[in-house]
Amino acid sequence: MIPYYLCFILFLVGLYGIITRRNLVKIAISLSVMEFSVFLLLALTGYREGGVAPIVDPTDPVKVYVDPLPQAMVLTAIVIGLATTAMIMAVIIRIYRKYGTFDIREIKNLRG
């Protein structure tokens, strides 16, 4: 069970980073850490004792394969995560150009 708990701890590390960091880029990095902890957990859910990569071998019908569906899900989620990260980095670059800082405490036009 230890790998699963480690995934949860990694998730919490990312959450801690998002809450406490002041730098926009560090917040984006913490988001990525959180994202990949979820992906690791998803990939782990497909694990089977003694399983091999799910490429069907017609000569050996009794082989144990790991579950391929979580892998497909993780791949899709990685693509989505890539789009999110690219989007957030573009926004951060734009913010830097407008405000001249990465510090979140100085970026507060909107309140109320």
Partner: peptide, 28 residues
């Protein structure tokens, strides 16, 4: 792409991404 829009979208994105990962964790 003015100051207010960018700040709003950053907040929206961080919380939206957080929501997505929590949902994905639940689905997993």
């Amino acid at each position: 792409v003015e100051k207010n829009e960018l700040e709003a979208t950053f907040k929206y994105q961080v919380l939206g991404a957080l929501a997505s990962f929590i949902i994905l964790l639940g689905i997993g």
